[in-house]
């Protein structure tokens, strides 16, 4: 399998720069994802609360 993926020369400089960028961008991506997940949980809770209140009123 190894050499078939590697039929194209990725280039040393291109690997090094993208490993660095991939690391930084990856951290940003994970951070955004975590924030979104946390916010999403709060929003869902808010909605549920709201929903409960509405139901209670009815």
């Amino acid at each position: 399998m190894r050499h078939f993926l590697a039929y194209l020369d990725p280039g040393s400089g291109s690997i090094i720069i993208q490993v660095i960028m991939g690391g930084v961008l990856g951290m940003g991506y994970m951070a955004r994802k975590s924030i979104a997940a946390v916010l999403g949980r709060f929003r869902r809770k808010d909605k549920t609360k709201g929903g409960e209140k509405k139901e209670a009123k009815e």
């Binding site: 399998m1 190894r2 078939f4 993926l5 590697a6 194209l8 990725p10 280039g11 291109s14 991939g22």
Partner: peptide, 16 residues
Amino acid sequence: FAKLSRQYWHGYRQFC
């Protein structure tokens, strides 16, 4: 299409 088996993307240089 190939199985993901490297930390980096082989096509990066070519894409740029």
